[in-house]
Nucleic acid binder design. Structure first.
Lengths: 150, 150
DNA sequence: TGTCAATCATTGATATATCAATTATTTATT
DNA sequence: AATAAATAATTGATATATCAATGATTGACA
């Protein structure tokens, strides 16, 4: 019934989110938090601004999610000694475990979502999605050079 | 940097939402509301449950968004005479205009998002997205026959 | 060196989304 | 016909996201 890319993308994304939601409470994370853990598991250490820029979300949202993650013992925050405005954020052991558990559920989800896709189709789908994202990014950086780095 | 489909889909969807956000306040709509207008513009008349099922969102969210849309004069609500539990919802003239304005922005957005995609690629991308969504749906309806009709 | 602008993080106000519980109406069962 | 179960919508509690404004620190430059 719905043919626009806008709605197709919305519905695919939303189905994914609905699938994963029950696992959030199981692991003890809020809906926006897994991606932060994921980034930290690769970057080891970073500041809040970097997270906000990478995911193109409001710094205030990052600040509050990290409050919750810190209270839950998933991350540790300390002020960066070389720039005392900035925080330096790292995963705790508990944070690493939570990230791994989440990853497992994400992989299971991909198996479901991509059922019936050949390897070539999967590669092409991934390519389409990253090109779509990239196209937005090029538009933004062109007109006015908005904050969002990378 | 980010390779999982989960994140690729998130980032593409999120970029789309970030692009469209400024137009929401311009038209006077909240972020979840345009899709309801879109559905109503095709169905002419429906109840709240149908919207919640189609978009796979919480009925409470639908109820509150319709409150706002009703106050803003975008939709009209009356109780369905043949089933007095249910509401019958229709677009007002203002709602139709808002929907049309929104559609225009969505089309512009697609031009940006799909820049560099051939016609064949666009068709394939749309097919991938709807298959991805469909795969989730088949999983859900298989195990336990969850509420979400269609 | 001293002021001004820029940057990182936080807080308050508001809107949206989920979950759980409630009310009102309809359908099913005995 | 009377009671129980199911359905449509709403409300309250809580979490998340945005926007605007503030505080603290750093960097630029006159």
């Amino acid at each position: 019934m719905e043919k626009t890319f806008h709605m197709l993308l919305y519905r695919a994304f939303h189905a994914q989110r609905n699938y994963l939601r029950p696992f959030l409470s199981e692991i003890g994370l809020g809906s926006g938090q897994p991606k932060l853990l994921s980034y930290l598991s690769r970057k080891t250490e970073c500041c809040q601004r970097e997270l906000a820029d990478y995911f193109e979300i409001d710094p205030a949202a990052v600040s509050r999610m990290l409050d919750t993650l810190e209270k839950g013992g998933f991350i540790a925050r300390k002020t960066d000694s070389s720039n005392r405005r900035a925080d330096s954020i790292t995963l705790t052991q508990k944070g690493v475990r939570a990230h791994n558990a989440w990853q497992k559920h994400c992989e299971e989800m991909e198996d479901i979502m991509l059922r019936g896709f050949s390897d070539a189709e999967r590669a092409q789908f991934a390519d389409f999605l990253s090109r779509a994202h990239q196209n937005f990014h090029e538009t933004w950086t062109k007109e006015g050079d908005v904050s969002c780095g990378n």
